[in-house]
Nucleic acid binder design. Structure first.
Lengths: 199, 199
DNA sequence: TGCGAAGTGGAGGACGCCTCCGTATCGTAA
DNA sequence: TTACGATACGGAGGCGTCCTCCACTTCGCA
């Protein structure tokens, strides 16, 4: 219900490291594992048995462990995947004729997603540190998407011109990440922020 | 180093429930278990084997499980214990001649403790919910201690009069609980707050 | 001092974690 | 197309932790 991401981008080898790409079957399995893990973690919490994840993905437990040596690696992969999906959603929404509605939709989806995964983020964040490649990637990706959405909305004159992308990120982040809020309370706060942003 | 609490108050049956008190040996074991669990969790993280906790306490694993059916129950007991210790510390400090120094010490210790256990709290909080007896007890106890410390400091004229206990709690809480801060960064923020509070 | 209630301890079954290596599949070069 | 090394797969099994269960011990009241 608050699940935004579905897009499984097999992800071309990103960083500088010159590793040869995964074999085709391995790539398929990796994608299946991420998908299965997401589903399993949603249904049974973030410490569902990894054997169940492997079974659901239709691969052996050994394959899971080769690709994701720890549970955290799996969580990290899901997270990256989700961040990419959120950015992808911004691209999709860029086609919408109603610019305000597109902006509004994106912010709402983004924050709903953030709320639903707050505890998970905290855990990841604590474990891998804010300097990690994943966190940098996440910051940059979200920031780029936010900039795109915001600039379009500002050029169309539906969002006030005196706020920056980082302001908006901080505002929305503040509504969703701090404290243990009820989802609908966070949603109300986001409504207020959106109201404040509208030109 | 950031470990404030040592006081193990065996805790008279608190709520309304008319349960007969624990037998003396059971009470001793309960205290030993809490103490051992605290030590074990500090040394090996919050998912140290419960068998080790039992061994360290010098009791059987069965005894541990009878008293604390889940790991969370144990964490909860430690937390309650700690909250009581912090409140106890406020009482101790009420004797200090230098009122400002006492206030400052208490706030510093309080926040250092909060920072050191932030992740744990988050976990507990998410698991048992803010309406739980433990959380209510915690809120009330801390609030009472804060009120005591603050009023004394205000009457002595060392802390500005226009702030309430809940303001201060929120300020300090804000420095310590939000985001994944480095301990010394949090400490600096607390310094700033203290500076702002001084009359 | 005796006796029932309360408490204890730890063996053992269940279950999840993770490794290891024989087998299968891929992809490239001829 | 074949052939062959590199790459990847699967899952049995060893290990460690969880948690239950119940025969035995201890407490504390009369």
């Amino acid at each position: 219900m608050t699940e935004v991401p579905q897009v499984v981008t097999p992800k071309a080898s990103d960083a500088a490291t010159t590793e040869r790409p995964l074999r085709a079957d391995a790539q398929r399995n990796q994608a299946k594992l991420i998908e299965a893990a997401r589903a399993e973690f949603v249904e049974h919490g973030a410490d569902a048995p990894l054997e169940d994840v492997a079974r659901r993905a239709g691969v052996g437990i050994g394959t899971l462990y080769r690709r994701f040596p720890t549970r955290l690696d799996l969580l990290e992969a899901i997270y990256r995947n989700d961040v990419d999906a959120i950015a992808g959603r911004a691209v999709e929404l860029a086609d919408e004729a109603d610019v305000w509605s597109a902006f509004r939709t994106w912010i709402t989806e983004f924050s709903a997603y953030a709320v639903s995964k707050r505890a998970l983020f905290q855990q990841l964040f604590d474990a891998i540190g804010k300097g990690s490649a994943t966190m940098t990637h996440s910051r940059e990706t979200v920031s780029a998407a936010m900039t795109t959405m915001l600039e379009r909305a500002q050029q169309a004159g539906v969002v006030r011109a005196d706020v920056s992308a980082s302001d908006v990120t901080r505002l929305v982040g503040g509504c969703t990440m701090m404290g243990a809020l009820e989802p609908d309370q966070a949603a109300r706060m986001v409504e207020v922020v959106l109201d404040g942003l509208r030109a």
